[in-house]
Simulated assay, not measured.
Amino acid sequence: MSVATRDMRAHSGLLDKAVLIAGPTASGKSALALELARESGGVVINTDSMQVYRDLRIITARPSEDEEALVPHRLYGHVDAGVNFSAGAWVADAAKVLGEARTQGRRPIFIGGSGLYFKALTRGLSAVPPIPAEVRDSVRARLERHGVEALHAELAARDPVSAERLMPRDRTRIARALEVVEATGRPLPDWHRDGLPPLLPPGEFSAIFLAPDRDQLYARIDARFGTMLEAGALAEVERLAARGLDPLLPAMKAHGVPALIRHLRGEISREEAAEIGRADTRHYAKRQFTWFRHQLPEFEWVAPEDAREWLQSRIS
């Protein structure tokens, strides 16, 4: 698309609305977004919390380099695995990319499976400030030294509302809630009340959730994990494991990563690791269905085979 054409379409209002494409893993989101971007001169913006990590191209099924060369792709692989990347950090990056897309007259196409990212995009986000590294390190040291039950008890004394909401063995969320109250002196629910406005208010986007048949989806998930292994996922995880990163970091908990690390240590066989990875991914897909149904009802559920027609009806 020429610059003149983009300018004309932008000023005519054809590119005002962003398109949000969500759905469970392996539902065909990336192919749909790529096709839409090629047809409309759009930019594909990653809205998946694992595909932000540059260390995890294969195991997270990121678009290939050839696919990324076809249309602009943003926020893919731009974060090091050693970073505890948050939804707030993603929103800040997404705001810049959204501004660039509108300046260039390109349709923003947000695509991914991370419900929290989409909720932050369309509903806003709590205004929790960055947590100092020394506070995070202190909380994690106590977690390793005393165990998650002790930290949950500490959280119950300092932030009883969060403690009641969290499962007593949810290591990541308990540590996060403690980090916030320790760093800011305010419990997490207080920050949630004083939130940041959404990047895309109602009326500025069309949102679709790809809802494939469950049995067919699970079969695709199983097949794709095998394909990823054949494509070098194990070597990718081996390079990640060699860095000796904190196992609580998000990148270290990507589906398939913990099990493949166990295989590399000789604890389980490759096939056992693969089956754990497949099962974890299937369970995650099930949670994605539930989360979007209850948390983001503004997304219209569409079968993948009907998605192209749905998009044409919304943006033509």
Results as ranks from 00 to 15, higher is better:
312 Q>A: 12
123 R>Y: 05
177 A>F: 02
51 Q>F: 12
147 G>F: 12
181 V>Q: 07
45 I>E: 05
255 H>A: 13
310 W>D: 09
130 P>C: 05
292 F>S: 00
108 P>W: 10
201 P>N: 04
117 Y>P: 02
288 Q>T: 14
197 P>D: 01
186 R>C: 06
116 L>F: 06
295 Q>G: 09
288 Q>G: 04
3 V>N: 14
28 G>L: 03
290 T>R: 14
250 P>R: 06
17 K>N: 12
285 A>F: 01
305 E>W: 10
59 I>F: 03
223 A>L: 09
163 A>P: 08
60 T>D: 00
25 T>W: 04
263 H>W: 13
298 E>M: 13
302 V>T: 05
215 D>V: 13
316 S>I: 04
124 G>C: 07
128 V>I: 14
183 A>M: 00
32 L>M: 05
246 D>V: 01
81 A>P: 00
255 H>K: 08
140 R>N: 11
255 H>N: 10
93 D>Q: 09
261 I>S: 03
258 P>C: 02
213 D>G: 12
133 A>I: 07
309 E>N: 09
191 W>H: 15
26 A>Q: 08
238 E>W: 04
182 E>S: 15
260 L>K: 05
167 M>H: 15
247 P>M: 10
172 T>N: 11
158 R>K: 13
262 R>Y: 03
123 R>V: 09
158 R>S: 12
301 W>T: 12
99 G>A: 02
290 T>W: 08
137 D>Q: 14
72 P>R: 02
77 G>V: 05
30 S>N: 06
143 L>P: 08
33 A>R: 01
310 W>F: 08
103 T>K: 11
89 A>N: 07
111 I>H: 02
306 D>R: 14
155 L>N: 07
202 P>T: 08
293 R>D: 13
258 P>V: 04
269 S>R: 03
117 Y>R: 07
96 K>Y: 13
228 M>I: 08
122 T>R: 00
214 R>Y: 10
13 G>L: 09
86 S>E: 07
287 R>F: 06
59 I>G: 00
255 H>S: 13
170 D>R: 12
207 A>W: 06
146 H>N: 15
129 P>D: 08
88 G>T: 03
